[in-house]
Design a protein around this nucleic acid. Structure first.
Length: 267
DNA sequence: AAGTCGACCAACCGCCTTCGA
DNA sequence: TTCGAAGGCGGTTGGTCGACT
């Protein structure tokens, strides 16, 4: 069964938004919110489809949008997160306040991909022995992930959000300030709240289920796929407080079955 | 001055997931 | 359990603008 288009094309406007349309959308959302995007344009008096309104609001009109060029720190963060997450622009955007997935995607394709390529050409030896090694090891460990982009189509954005939210809702992944070009330090470190939460969850009887290859961790949190879970952990270098509680992680991974080989890598 | 090309970015498209009836 | 509606996401397109010839 072929799905109907998101909006009837008849009579609906496409293309760039005018300032008037923007103002109508802003006024409406400020007054009534955006509970139902589909119904919004009709109620607001806009000749646009709901999707278009949503996109315009999310990417341009939202009050907390940060406009302007990306800082070097933001670009480094994107590069690091992209190495970790692949083309999951919304997951990357979630870690860059005020930036949208669309904007990040654009900046990646226009600037960062080029920059990374140049860097790799300039430093092939260094890359082979530092970051590249790390990436390779990570890719090999992610046995289920065959392609760098969209590692598995079954993984959803909610999975990704659970990377940060399941073990600890306030876990904060951040990049260290890059102090050197050989970016040993550009790998992520984690907010210590993350481990505090994880450890307290363990002490209070964390529930780990490996059915369907998913962990259900810390009551009420979204399930987390093994690959995602591994990805999130693998981003954290040895030396963090993770190492203080190896038994917990060992149990977690051995229960899952497939990850014993990566324990030396993580621990 | 006119034409061409590439960079940039806003917006669209189609697919997937989630949710509720 | 099934199905359709809606939301969300990543890939792609197309218009605009500036640099260059």
């Amino acid at each position: 069964m072929v799905r109907a288009p998101c909006c009837e094309k008849m009579g609906l406007k496409k293309g760039p938004w005018t300032p008037e349309e923007d103002q109508i959308l802003i006024n409406y959302i400020q007054l009534y919110g955006h509970g139902n995007w589909r119904a919004l344009p009709k109620q607001a008096g806009l000749l646009r489809c709901g999707k278009s309104c949503r996109l315009r609001w999310i990417n341009y009109l939202r009050p907390d949008i940060k406009r302007g060029n990306f800082t070097r720190e933001e670009e480094d963060t994107i590069i690091n997160l992209h190495e970790m997450l692949g083309n999951r622009w919304s997951a990357i955007a979630a870690r860059l306040p005020g930036r949208t997935d669309n904007e990040i995607k654009n900046v990646w394709h226009t600037h960062l991909k080029k920059r990374l390529k140049q860097k790799q050409q300039q430093e092939p030896v260094i890359n082979n022995h530092s970051n590249a090694n790390h990436v390779t090891a990570r890719s090999e460990i992610c046995s289920g992930a065959s392609t760098p982009d969209r590692q598995d189509s079954t993984t959803t954005s909610s999975d990704m959000s659970s990377v940060t939210s399941s073990a600890a809702n306030n876990a904060c992944v951040k990049t260290e300030p890059s102090s050197s070009e050989n970016n040993h330090d550009s790998l992520v470190e984690i907010d210590e709240n993350f481990w505090t939460e994880v450890l307290s969850a363990e002490n209070s009887g964390i529930s780990i289920e490996d059915s369907n290859d998913r962990f259900s961790a810390v009551g009420g949190a979204d399930p987390l796929s093994i690959v995602e879970f591994q990805s999130s952990l693998d981003a954290f270098r040895p030396g963090s407080t993770l190492c203080d509680n190896t038994d917990f992680w060992f149990n977690l991974f051995t229960k899952a079955g497939d990850f014993s080989e990566m324990l030396p890598e993580i621990l």
